[in-house]
Each structure stands twice: as C-alpha cells, then as structure tokens.
Design a protein around this nucleic acid. Structure first.
Length: 243
DNA sequence: CCGGCCA
C-alpha cells in the first residue's frame, strides 16, 4: 500500500514546484513540471487528452536526462522510417524499444504504430505487476518534447544530474539482486568527482543506500575477500575453543 | 479529429 518513502500522513512532504512547460501536440496537451521534495528534484509529465483524460509519469532528473537522449535516437529512427506499412509491422507493433532502469523503477520506451499513426509510449512500472503509468507522445511531437526536457534540464538539472552524459552508454548497466526478502540495486553513476557505485537496499517501505567512489572499489574488494577467506578458515576448522 | 496500453 504505502510506496517506498511513504511514512504516514502526519506530515505530507512539502513539494515545491519550480517550473512548468506546456506543450500542445496534436490533440494532446503535455505538462512538464519540475518539482522538488525531500527526495530531490524530478519532472512530472502529465498528459491531458482531448476528453480531459489524464495520465502521468514521474522522472528523476537523471532519468529525464536519459530519456532526453533516447528521444534523440527515437526521432532519428522515426525520421528514417518510410510511410506506414501495415504489412511489415512487427507482431507487437513495436518499431524500436528501450528500457531505462532506475533503482526499482523500469521505464519502457516503445516507438509504436497503429491505425492512428506512430507514437512513443513511455511507461513506468514500480515493482513487477505493480501499477503502471504511462504517456503516449505522438511521434511528430518527440522533438518538441525532447527540446522542452532539454530546457528544463539545463535550467534545473544539478551538476550531478547533468554529468552523466560523458560516459553514457559506456558505464556498466545497473544490476539488481534479490536475497531472501531484500532487494539490492547497484547503480553506476558519475558526477563531478568521478564514477561511483550506489548500492541501495530496498525493503517493502524502507530504503537505504551507500555511495562508493570508484577509486576505492579495489579496497572494498580486498576487504570482502579477506572476510570470505576468514570465514572459510573458520568453517574449515573443526569445532574447538576460539581465538 | 483523435488515440495508442499488461513486458
């Protein structure tokens, strides 16, 4: 019920709104809001359809940056596509797909085509089988959408948010590990001080994380191996008095 | 002038 970070409703988290951009793309309106709460800055994307139907999506700034970069390659692919041809569509209608993984959230980007035309579906899942929020951007509007994100990121992205670019695509992918009832997430990131690994431990409504600079990974590894050896010695040794 | 969706 309570999502990660939900700590009861005594004190609703103060949420500050920093900026809003409104895009009109064909019959739809998109609101891009930069907001900020205790957990940091994020962009809320809200889609309002012609009948007032709404759907929304939350993006951490670093995810927004990644999405911005994907939008560039999605629009290149879109531009290179010939006229719609129902005969040679893939089964699922997907012309190109990407997945972005951000801690316990997955974002699926799919350039799709149906009888109405082409569109980019951006959908977000929290845990497996969990709620799914999504927006569908008409393919014609991807560039406009990307430019709006770029503006917001340039103005409101912190140095850490924006520094991801240099190594993008070269840094190892995030990993996830489930051990008993704990989830561990490993994310490699980069900021002005260098590369780091963030290890998050996530339980139902609790999370903690540490950030380990890349320079020290070797020492961490040495300490781990040392402990692994020590424990092995202990368990190899027949039971007797300690020390 | 919409309208897209269960990994």
């Amino acid at each position: 019920m309570a999502g990660p970070g939900g700590r009861g409703q005594l004190m609703p988290p103060p949420e500050e709104e920093l900026a809003t951009k409104v895009l009109q793309i064909q019959s739809k309106r998109f609101y891009l809001d930069v907001k900020q709460n205790r957990r940091g800055r994020f962009i809320k994307v809200a889609e309002v359809g012609p009948a007032g139907r709404k759907s929304r999506l939350l993006l951490a700034m670093s995810t927004a940056l990644e999405l911005r970069d994907h939008l560039t390659s999605f629009s290149e692919i879109y531009a290179s596509l010939g006229p719609p041809n129902p005969d040679n569509l893939p089964e699922d209608g997907k012309l190109k797909s990407e997945v972005m993984i951000k801690e316990n959230r997955r974002y699926y980007l799919d350039l799709k085509e149906n009888s109405r035309g082409r569109f980019l579906r951006i959908s977000q899942t929290i845990a497996r089988g969990g709620p799914r929020s999504q927006v569908a951007v008409p393919a014609q509007g991807m560039i406009e959408f990307r430019d709006a994100l770029t503006d917001l990121l340039e103005e409101f992205g912190t140095e850490d948010d924006m520094s991801y670019g240099r190594f993008k695509g070269e840094l190892p992918e995030a990993r996830h590990m489930r051990i008993e009832n704990k989830n561990f997430y490993f994310d490699i990131g980069q900021n002005s001080r260098g590369i780091y690994m963030r290890i998050s431990e996530v339980k139902s409504n609790f999370r903690t994380a540490i950030t380990i600079p890349e320079k020290s990974w070797g020492r961490f590894r040495d300490i781990f191996s040392e402990y692994v050896e020590k424990l092995k010695e202990l368990s190899d040794k027949p039971a007797e008095e300690g020390k």
